[in-house]
Amino acid sequence: MRFARLRAQRWYYAHRGVDEPMRALLSSRLPTDRTPLDEAEFVALDIETTGLDVATAHMLSIGWVIVRGGRVQLQTAESYIVRPSKGVGDSASVHGLTDTVVRAGIEWGVVLDKVVSVMRGRILVVHHAGLDKTLLDRMCLKRYGVRLPVPFIDTLELEMRRRRRKHHLESASSLRLSDLRGEYGLPRYLAHDCLVDAIATAELLIAMAAHRRATSLGGVLD
């Protein structure tokens, strides 16, 4: 059964005792394969970091949007710039954020509380999730003493599995978010901040679900 491990993990965390908002997240409902797609809720999310090394990277900014009823709900879009404990470092020029802008941001713990709150009863969706998910886990460990125990979908991973099934594994470059969106007939977005990327990921998710003719969560995940 899908999410069995996650269910066990949540039970274990809950018995160790954690603070809000993590406590509420642990007691929220988990979906199943049979959950109708229209009833499942997703949080598509993107994080900009100070670097690509999981061990040292810090969150610079974060954006997310909720998918409900099979549609991307732009009124739920949120994005935050995180105030770091250390200097911004190399990544500033990449993301166009200067030290000044970043210092005006919000403390990482406050932002993380918002993430955990919005994840309650929802499924995390990230494109190329590795770094972002690891980073969120590490931050949750630091703040709540537990990892982020949510079901999550990596849209890149979903596409790779589809291609493997169809026996045509393409080079990783064509799995980039913008290239993949093009294949599904989705428009090209000009900006590349984390909110636009989160919206772009959310749209890719609903496009993939439509192409799989999925009506339940299992149909998307398989």
């Binding site: 549609r71 991307v72 709900q73 732009l74 609903i206």
Partner: peptide, 11 residues
């Protein structure tokens, strides 16, 4: 208006 949009995909 931008925030009052729901995005949907149709095949």
């Amino acid at each position: 208006c931008a925030r009052a949009i729901e995005v949907a995909y149709y095949r």
